[in-house]
Amino acid sequence: MNRDTTAETLLEARDLHTWFELRQWGFLRAGHVRAVDGVNFALRRGEAVAFVGESGCGKSSLARTLLGLHRPTRGEVVFEGGHLEALDKRGLKTYRARVGYVQQDPYGALPPFMDVGRILSEPLIIHGVRDRETRQARVRAALEEVRLTPAESYLSKFPHQLSGGQQQRVVIARALVLEPSMIIADEPVSMLDASVRVEILRLLRNIQVERGLTLAFITHDLSTVRHFAERIFVMYGGRIVEQAEVNELLDHPQHPYTQALLAAIPDPDPDNADREHAVPGGEPPSLANPPPGCRFHPRCPEAMAGLCDRDEPPDFEPRPVHLSACWLHR
């Protein structure tokens, strides 16, 4: 299945920072929102990874940085050997054809005034596929790939005439139509009905495997991750706090934050009603003014005074190929 996950690195982020300037009264500089604050990882060609975290952990900003929608403040993104931050306008355009984007809200992601045929042709027109016949053929192929068949019956439909699941398939088809080598899916199913979610995740996963794509899948929902990704990055406060292969991480979570997250997720079980979850108190940190040291220490049940609140923990490797940024593993 995973033909060459051990092989080539497709995308690498080194010490990546994406900060947004905060302004007061429109012009005074009032510091930065550190949405992505020192992130390192490497994605291999053909693997599916998940970035997991709560809202405000910086995972969507990371996705947008990888898509070239935000300029990184510091650090670098290397994609197929080229540096993203060094690309000129043309280079960026070419890069964008190589990376597909699937968004959270399928209805919002589709221009409501275009029909499906037009929506799927747009990327092709932009990237200079002039011949109408070629475009039509590629649009049809993309629709078939996302199982919207017969393709002809969907071409002239408008987004509002489709169900949520169908809309998300169109979004996926649009991400595929330029034949990218990587797809970034930002919460692709969180706005969909429970019964459709599995369908869409499976579709994405199947396409990823068939095409040998790299899939970066951003989610807040750890329970869906096991079957649809191979590796997990857990993010908190703009950083990656834990990363490992999916079963390893879910079965042996190391970081106290990951442990709390997993403990808070219920499986449908009538016994749930009788027990309360151990929920860490407090709120996720403000990215404009993050706590010093480990960002989780104010909420951490095992925080060590004088260490966790002072020094940033480096990545430890408490188990083989399993990184966790926590002083507990010291």
Partner: peptide, 15 residues
């Protein structure tokens, strides 16, 4: 019930 993804279950959910 079969479509619910479960954290601690080896079988993938069904749609």
């Amino acid at each position: 019930m079969a479509s619910v993804p479960r954290l601690h279950q080896p079988d993938p959910p069904q749609h």
